[in-house]
């Protein structure tokens, strides 16, 4: 057999997912109508947050979380960072960006530099404001707390993979009077962002950020494809539930999934 046993259905599912996304991208490229992404208040609020910081003459703080460079949440945060950096460059607002992972720091430095360049403000880019704090989780957290107390940012954008530090960062941001946008797909931390931040993005919303912010139909097409896959998944869950009740554990769907 060419394929790895037990992963055949996974591959079929992957191909289906790719197909759904491909069809939607083709439709978008051909100018055919595709469903729009609904309004995501957390992403809409980014401009408001940066505008507030500009009016108050205080900086914006951005954290991509503490996940590694290969974490999907960190990757999703790059698009938002690029957007935030460009807006900050346009409004001439100081952006303080903190990192726990040095590889993420290196990428973020490039993203911010490029954003300032594209906004026509390369002179405003300050490499000292893109900071690597510590690879140690609570060392990073203490570093951010110190920056909050000293610099008192007017906007705090937490977008990425967060763990125990989520609550500490969100609450300290609240205490220094920052407008806060929190986004993570770590389900244990979502309640903390909901409680501590003004706006919270839940799970998949953060992955739609690049498509939402760029408003490019091709990128939106991938989000629509993802939604189709999600609907099919939910249909499988309901079907699986019914089959488990009717046919028991050895139902055909379970057998199919184990192929």
């Amino acid at each position: 057999m060419i394929l790895v046993e037990g992963r055949v259905f996974q591959l079929v599912w992957l191909i289906f997912f790719l197909g759904a996304v491909y069809v939607m991208i083709r439709r978008a490229r051909a100018g055919l109508p595709i469903p729009e992404i609904r309004k995501i208040p957390g992403l809409e609020a980014i401009d408001e947050a940066i505008g507030r910081a500009t009016e108050m003459g205080r900086p914006v703080h951005y954290s991509p979380g503490i996940g590694s460079i290969s974490n999907p949440q960190t990757i999703a945060s790059y698009a938002v960072l690029s957007y935030v950096a460009r807006r900050c460059a346009e409004y001439d607002t100081r952006l303080i960006q903190t990192n726990r992972q040095i590889t993420v720091h290196a990428v973020n430095q490039e993203i911010i530099k490029q954003a300032y360049l594209e906004a026509g403000r390369p002179d405003a880019y300050n490499p000292d404001d893109v900071r690597f704090l510590s690879t140690w989780q609570f060392g990073y957290t203490s570093g951010v707390l110190g920056i909050f107390q000293r610099e008192r940012p007017a906007a705090n954008i937490l977008f990425g993979a967060f763990w125990a530090e989520a609550m500490i960062l969100a609450e300290t941001g609240h205490h220094v009077g920052a407008i806060q946008i929190g986004a993570t797909a770590n389900t244990a931390q979502i309640p903390f962002f909901v409680a501590g931040c003004d706006y919270a993005l839940i799970g998949e919303e953060m992955y739609a950020a690049s498509a939402y912010l760029s408003k490019e139909p091709v990128l939106s097409g991938t989000v629509v494809g993802q939604d189709i896959a999600k609907m099919v998944t939910f249909a499988f869950i309901i079907l699986g539930f019914i089959l488990e009740q009717v046919q028991g554990e050895n139902n055909w769907l379970r057998v199919l999934f184990s192929k």
């Binding site: 997912f17 996304v21 839940i202 992955y207 993802q226 999600k230």
Partner: peptide
């Protein structure tokens, strides 16, 4: 939430 997040991360990877 996790299901949506996994599919979302998959779409980002793609």
């Amino acid at each position: 939430i996790l299901l949506g997040a996994y599919l979302g991360s998959f779409a980002v990877a793609m």
